[in-house]
Design a binder for these strands. Structure first.
Lengths: 196, 196
DNA sequence: TGCGCAAAAGCAATTTTTTTGCGTTAGCGC
DNA sequence: GCGCTAACGCAAAAAAATTGCTTTTGCGCA
């Protein structure tokens, strides 16, 4: 199979003009994947099927994305990109609780979990996962920056990720039982309660 | 494809006598996967290939595991099962640091990361992931129990998972850059430093 | 604006993988 | 020992993936 260099398919949006054919193909393939994912189960999803709905030939998809996993990961990363800034609720603690709770809820859903798995499963895992964790990090950075302008003492960004984000993802991916009612609130407490 | 019930393949060790044919098949297939995984890249790994090395027909594998992902997940869970108890280094803090550091190291390796991804990628993700997180939890429980017999104050098991284990897995799966030199020590500090 | 180059897509033949029906084997209870 | 049935092997058929070659088309440049 000599897979090594073949698998390094171009991920995410390539540097193409928005009117170009490649861009059109990419858009229509992405749309097709999302459409199929919305109604059918992911187990019954094949490259030829996507190709047919997208109006391209399967070989186009194979050449461009390598395989179904890469394509799904590519689509997932797109959908993981945040569309709005975290809501401003007036304080660091509530900003955090609100954003984390929303994140937890979205990612706990079956579509959310599927996207996370797709991102992690791809061979270009490193790229995709890094990308999608950069998104969350950036959202947290916005919250932190806002708090700083208010004059609050703001924890380190790494601490925010380690103390609050990581346990949520652990809960989603490995063990949902740890996420009881006050889970997110407890995490934020742990972050904001200063160690003596 | 009517995948819904087909995909619910039997996972993990079925209730079979160790001398039975199924058990022999399972063992030889597992061994074949590990052997192939050890030398070839996972991209160039196919069911027929595994079947050939294991001395079974591909259809046996398809019927029993469903597809390559499920098989890989099954094998990964087996390999994730801890073989020894956590080392007794004389104190809770050092026990934790030692075990977590070893865990981090093992799972950060390419084989380790691949196993985690395999477990998460399978459709029976819930089962596999829960299983493998139960392993870690149990190891931590052993450490906690030992500390209790010493009369130490022992943190909640959930806290140990959230504060120490989750960030390590986050680092492995999403963002290795957070895991600098004193990473594990810092996590254990965070766990054992009592909040006032 | 038009020309040519190269990247990307289409097409079709080939190969490989996956699925499935049916006969056979072998483990397990009686 | 004697069936009964779950699990396996075999082989044919279907589906998916790969690949060589042709065609299209976007882009840079004169």
């Amino acid at each position: 199979m000599e897979a090594t260099e073949k698998k390094v398919a171009r991920l995410a949006t390539p540097g193409l003009r928005p009117g170009g054919r490649s861009a059109r193909v990419q858009a229509s393939v992405h749309a097709a994947v999302q459409a199929l994912l919305a109604e059918h189960d992911r187990a019954e999803l094949s490259v030829p099927q996507v190709a047919a709905l997208a109006g391209v030939t399967p070989s186009t998809i194979y050449r461009r994305w390598g395989d179904l996993n890469e394509l799904l990961a590519d689509v997932a990363v797109e959908r993981l990109r945040p569309e709005t800034e975290p809501a401003d609720t007036g304080g660091l603690r509530s900003d955090l609780e609100s954003w984390l709770e929303q994140y937890r809820e979205e990612m706990s859903s079956e579509p959310g979990r599927a996207m996370l798995r797709d991102v992690l499963a791809s061979l270009g895992s490193a790229i995709g996962a890094a990308q999608c964790c950069a998104f969350s990090r950036q959202q947290l950075a916005v919250i932190a920056a806002r708090a700083k302008t208010r004059g609050d003492v703001v924890p380190d960004l790494d601490a925010m990720v380690e103390v609050c984000l990581a346990p949520i993802l652990y809960g989603i991916l490995f063990d949902a039982t740890i996420m009881d009612e006050g889970f997110v609130r407890r995490l934020v407490d742990r972050l904001l309660t200063p160690a003596p």
